[in-house]
Design a binder for these strands. Structure first.
Length: 225
DNA sequence: AACCCATGCAACCGCACACTA
DNA sequence: ATAGTGTGCGGTTGCATGGGT
Protein backbone atom coordinates (compact mmCIF):
# COMPACT_ATOMS: atom_id res chain seq x y z
CA UNK A 1 0.00 0.00 0.00
CA UNK A 2 1.37 3.34 0.98
CA UNK A 3 4.48 2.15 2.64
CA UNK A 4 6.43 5.32 2.05
CA UNK A 5 3.94 7.58 3.68
CA UNK A 6 3.63 5.09 6.52
CA UNK A 7 7.34 5.22 7.17
CA UNK A 8 7.08 7.97 9.71
CA UNK A 9 4.75 5.78 11.71
CA UNK A 10 6.70 2.61 11.06
CA UNK A 11 9.79 4.27 12.43
CA UNK A 12 7.97 4.64 15.71
CA UNK A 13 7.22 0.95 16.02
CA UNK A 14 9.53 -0.62 18.52
CA UNK A 15 10.91 -4.10 17.99
CA UNK A 16 13.11 -6.43 19.93
CA UNK A 17 13.19 -7.23 23.62
CA UNK A 18 10.63 -5.63 25.88
CA UNK A 19 11.77 -3.31 28.61
CA UNK A 20 10.34 -3.51 32.08
CA UNK A 21 8.74 -0.14 31.57
CA UNK A 22 6.84 -1.46 28.58
CA UNK A 23 5.85 -4.54 30.53
CA UNK A 24 4.44 -2.44 33.32
CA UNK A 25 2.55 -0.25 30.93
CA UNK A 26 1.01 -3.30 29.32
CA UNK A 27 0.18 -4.95 32.65
CA UNK A 28 -1.31 -1.73 33.92
CA UNK A 29 -3.40 -1.19 30.89
CA UNK A 30 -4.76 -4.72 30.79
CA UNK A 31 -5.46 -4.66 34.52
CA UNK A 32 -7.56 -1.57 34.03
CA UNK A 33 -9.14 -2.20 30.67
CA UNK A 34 -8.87 -5.90 30.01
CA UNK A 35 -7.23 -7.62 27.09
CA UNK A 36 -8.29 -7.90 23.50
CA UNK A 37 -8.45 -5.62 20.44
CA UNK A 38 -4.70 -5.56 20.56
CA UNK A 39 -4.04 -2.97 17.92
CA UNK A 40 -6.09 -0.32 19.61
CA UNK A 41 -4.84 -1.50 22.98
CA UNK A 42 -1.29 -0.86 21.89
CA UNK A 43 -2.21 2.60 20.71
CA UNK A 44 -4.30 3.49 23.72
CA UNK A 45 -1.70 2.27 26.16
CA UNK A 46 0.87 4.45 24.47
CA UNK A 47 3.06 1.52 23.56
CA UNK A 48 5.07 1.87 20.39
CA UNK A 49 4.46 -1.78 19.65
CA UNK A 50 2.24 -3.63 17.27
CA UNK A 51 -0.88 -5.25 18.61
CA UNK A 52 0.62 -8.56 17.71
CA UNK A 53 3.68 -7.89 19.78
CA UNK A 54 1.59 -6.85 22.76
CA UNK A 55 -0.57 -9.93 22.51
CA UNK A 56 2.43 -12.21 22.28
CA UNK A 57 4.14 -10.56 25.20
CA UNK A 58 1.05 -10.80 27.34
CA UNK A 59 0.12 -14.35 26.49
CA UNK A 60 3.59 -15.81 26.60
CA UNK A 61 5.10 -13.88 29.43
CA UNK A 62 3.08 -11.41 31.44
CA UNK A 63 -0.16 -13.24 32.09
CA UNK A 64 -0.48 -13.88 35.83
CA UNK A 65 -1.20 -17.56 35.35
CA UNK A 66 1.64 -18.29 32.98
CA UNK A 67 4.10 -20.92 34.15
CA UNK A 68 7.60 -20.81 32.82
CA UNK A 69 10.48 -23.24 32.95
CA UNK A 70 10.78 -26.56 34.77
CA UNK A 71 8.72 -28.73 32.49
CA UNK A 72 7.85 -31.70 34.65
CA UNK A 73 8.25 -35.29 33.47
CA UNK A 74 4.48 -35.57 33.42
CA UNK A 75 4.22 -32.53 31.21
CA UNK A 76 7.00 -33.82 29.04
CA UNK A 77 5.22 -37.10 28.57
CA UNK A 78 1.98 -35.34 27.83
CA UNK A 79 3.65 -33.15 25.25
CA UNK A 80 5.04 -36.18 23.54
CA UNK A 81 1.74 -37.99 23.55
CA UNK A 82 -0.17 -35.03 22.24
CA UNK A 83 2.44 -34.26 19.64
CA UNK A 84 2.25 -37.84 18.44
CA UNK A 85 -1.49 -37.39 18.19
CA UNK A 86 -1.72 -33.94 16.66
CA UNK A 87 1.68 -33.04 15.31
CA UNK A 88 2.82 -29.44 15.51
CA UNK A 89 -0.51 -28.14 16.78
CA UNK A 90 1.22 -26.30 19.56
CA UNK A 91 -1.67 -24.19 20.68
CA UNK A 92 -3.87 -27.26 20.84
CA UNK A 93 -1.25 -29.07 22.88
CA UNK A 94 -0.81 -26.05 25.11
CA UNK A 95 -4.47 -26.10 26.01
CA UNK A 96 -3.88 -29.40 27.78
CA UNK A 97 -0.99 -28.02 29.80
CA UNK A 98 -2.38 -25.35 32.10
CA UNK A 99 -0.20 -22.29 32.28
CA UNK A 100 2.05 -23.39 29.46
CA UNK A 101 2.15 -21.44 26.24
CA UNK A 102 2.34 -22.76 22.72
CA UNK A 103 5.58 -20.89 22.25
CA UNK A 104 7.19 -22.49 25.25
CA UNK A 105 6.07 -25.95 24.27
CA UNK A 106 7.25 -25.39 20.74
CA UNK A 107 10.65 -24.24 21.95
CA UNK A 108 10.82 -27.08 24.40
CA UNK A 109 10.04 -29.56 21.71
CA UNK A 110 12.58 -28.20 19.29
CA UNK A 111 15.41 -27.80 21.76
CA UNK A 112 14.94 -30.84 23.95
CA UNK A 113 12.71 -33.56 22.66
CA UNK A 114 13.53 -33.29 18.99
CA UNK A 115 17.19 -33.61 19.84
CA UNK A 116 16.58 -36.82 21.72
CA UNK A 117 14.40 -38.19 18.98
CA UNK A 118 17.15 -37.56 16.47
CA UNK A 119 19.58 -39.35 18.72
CA UNK A 120 17.15 -42.22 19.05
CA UNK A 121 16.72 -42.27 15.31
CA UNK A 122 20.44 -42.42 14.79
CA UNK A 123 20.63 -45.25 17.25
CA UNK A 124 17.79 -47.22 15.72
CA UNK A 125 19.05 -46.50 12.22
CA UNK A 126 22.37 -47.94 13.17
CA UNK A 127 20.71 -50.95 14.76
CA UNK A 128 18.38 -51.63 11.90
CA UNK A 129 20.94 -50.94 9.21
CA UNK A 130 19.90 -49.48 5.89
CA UNK A 131 16.68 -51.42 5.37
CA UNK A 132 14.54 -48.70 6.83
CA UNK A 133 16.48 -45.78 5.54
CA UNK A 134 13.46 -44.39 3.82
CA UNK A 135 11.50 -44.24 6.99
CA UNK A 136 14.33 -42.94 9.09
CA UNK A 137 15.37 -40.19 6.75
CA UNK A 138 11.75 -39.45 6.14
CA UNK A 139 11.08 -38.92 9.79
CA UNK A 140 14.06 -36.66 10.05
CA UNK A 141 12.64 -34.68 7.21
CA UNK A 142 10.54 -31.87 8.58
CA UNK A 143 8.14 -32.14 5.72
CA UNK A 144 6.87 -35.48 6.91
CA UNK A 145 4.00 -35.63 9.27
CA UNK A 146 5.11 -36.36 12.82
CA UNK A 147 2.38 -38.90 13.43
CA UNK A 148 3.89 -40.97 10.69
CA UNK A 149 7.25 -40.42 12.23
CA UNK A 150 6.43 -41.91 15.57
CA UNK A 151 4.23 -44.70 14.42
CA UNK A 152 6.66 -45.89 11.84
CA UNK A 153 10.05 -45.55 13.34
CA UNK A 154 9.81 -44.72 17.01
CA UNK A 155 6.40 -45.58 18.38
CA UNK A 156 7.02 -44.51 21.93
CA UNK A 157 4.48 -45.96 24.30
CA UNK A 158 1.85 -44.03 26.12
CA UNK A 159 1.69 -43.55 29.88
CA UNK A 160 5.00 -45.17 30.55
CA UNK A 161 7.80 -43.15 32.07
CA UNK A 162 10.28 -45.96 32.01
CA UNK A 163 9.70 -46.58 28.36
CA UNK A 164 9.93 -42.91 27.66
CA UNK A 165 13.35 -42.69 29.19
CA UNK A 166 14.28 -45.79 27.31
CA UNK A 167 13.41 -44.00 24.15
CA UNK A 168 15.69 -41.19 25.17
CA UNK A 169 18.44 -43.67 25.70
CA UNK A 170 20.01 -44.77 28.95
CA UNK A 171 22.46 -41.91 29.00
CA UNK A 172 19.63 -39.44 28.89
CA UNK A 173 18.04 -40.33 32.18
CA UNK A 174 19.47 -37.14 33.51
CA UNK A 175 16.81 -35.29 31.59
CA UNK A 176 14.01 -36.93 33.48
CA UNK A 177 15.91 -37.07 36.74
CA UNK A 178 16.76 -33.43 36.48
CA UNK A 179 13.15 -32.56 36.02
CA UNK A 180 12.19 -34.69 38.95
CA UNK A 181 14.79 -32.92 41.04
CA UNK A 182 13.49 -29.50 40.18
CA UNK A 183 9.89 -30.50 40.14
CA UNK A 184 9.08 -28.29 43.09
CA UNK A 185 8.09 -25.55 40.79
CA UNK A 186 7.72 -22.06 42.07
CA UNK A 187 6.14 -19.59 39.71
CA UNK A 188 8.78 -16.93 39.36
CA UNK A 189 9.30 -14.51 36.59
CA UNK A 190 12.87 -14.20 35.49
CA UNK A 191 13.07 -10.89 33.82
CA UNK A 192 15.12 -11.24 30.67
CA UNK A 193 15.21 -7.65 29.65
CA UNK A 194 18.02 -5.23 29.93
CA UNK A 195 18.32 -4.40 33.60
CA UNK A 196 20.03 -1.17 32.73
CA UNK A 197 16.79 0.08 31.32
CA UNK A 198 14.96 -0.58 34.57
CA UNK A 199 13.85 2.27 36.72
CA UNK A 200 16.25 2.69 39.61
CA UNK A 201 13.49 2.19 42.15
CA UNK A 202 13.00 -1.47 41.38
CA UNK A 203 14.51 -3.97 43.77
CA UNK A 204 17.59 -5.61 42.35
CA UNK A 205 19.68 -6.59 45.33
CA UNK A 206 18.68 -9.91 46.85
CA UNK A 207 16.98 -11.67 44.00
CA UNK A 208 18.99 -10.02 41.26
CA UNK A 209 16.88 -10.13 38.17
CA UNK A 210 14.34 -12.65 39.40
CA UNK A 211 10.94 -11.08 39.62
CA UNK A 212 7.92 -12.83 40.89
CA UNK A 213 4.61 -12.16 39.27
CA UNK A 214 3.49 -10.91 42.64
CA UNK A 215 6.24 -8.34 42.48
CA UNK A 216 5.14 -7.21 39.08
CA UNK A 217 1.51 -7.08 40.01
CA UNK A 218 2.21 -5.26 43.24
CA UNK A 219 4.33 -2.84 41.27
CA UNK A 220 1.45 -2.41 38.93
CA UNK A 221 -0.70 -1.59 41.92
CA UNK A 222 1.85 0.92 43.11
CA UNK A 223 2.13 2.54 39.75
CA UNK A 224 -1.36 1.92 38.61
CA UNK A 225 -4.19 4.39 38.63
C1' DA B 1 42.23 -15.00 29.48
C1' DA B 2 40.35 -15.01 25.14
C1' DC B 3 37.98 -17.04 21.69
C1' DC B 4 34.70 -20.20 19.56
C1' DC B 5 30.75 -23.01 19.41
C1' DA B 6 26.39 -24.97 20.92
C1' DT B 7 22.22 -24.27 23.17
C1' DG B 8 17.96 -22.11 24.83
C1' DC B 9 14.65 -18.72 24.56
C1' DA B 10 12.15 -14.42 23.33
C1' DA B 11 10.35 -12.22 19.65
C1' DC B 12 9.30 -11.45 14.72
C1' DC B 13 7.24 -12.79 10.30
C1' DG B 14 4.05 -14.56 7.07
C1' DC B 15 -0.01 -16.90 6.34
C1' DA B 16 -4.72 -18.41 7.14
C1' DC B 17 -8.93 -17.95 9.30
C1' DA B 18 -12.86 -15.42 11.53
C1' DC B 19 -15.58 -11.67 11.98
C1' DT B 20 -17.86 -7.47 10.62
C1' DA B 21 -19.54 -3.70 7.86
C1' DA C 1 -20.81 -11.53 -1.81
C1' DT C 2 -16.82 -9.12 -0.76
C1' DA C 3 -13.25 -6.34 1.17
C1' DG C 4 -11.06 -4.86 5.31
C1' DT C 5 -9.41 -5.71 9.83
C1' DG C 6 -8.11 -8.32 13.78
C1' DT C 7 -6.52 -12.55 15.73
C1' DG C 8 -4.22 -16.96 16.11
C1' DC C 9 -0.86 -20.15 14.71
C1' DG C 10 3.41 -22.30 13.18
C1' DG C 11 7.95 -21.47 11.45
C1' DT C 12 12.05 -19.02 11.80
C1' DT C 13 15.55 -15.86 13.40
C1' DG C 14 18.65 -13.36 16.38
C1' DC C 15 20.64 -12.70 20.71
C1' DA C 16 22.38 -13.96 25.28
C1' DT C 17 24.68 -17.24 27.85
C1' DG C 18 27.41 -21.14 29.27
C1' DG C 19 30.79 -24.57 28.33
C1' DG C 20 34.77 -26.18 26.01
C1' DT C 21 39.31 -25.49 23.95
Amino acid sequence: MDKKSGNSQDAEVRKGPWTMEEDLILINYIANHGEGVWNSLARSAGLKRTGKSCRLRWLNYLRPDVRRGNITPEEQLLIMELHAKWGNRWSKIAKHLPGRTDNEIKNYWRTRIQKHIKQAETFSAGAQCSDNNDQISGSADHHHHPVETYSSSLSYPENDHASTSQMFGSTDHHLLLHHQAVESYSPVLSYPGNLETFPATFPTESTDNIWSMEDLWSMHLVNGD
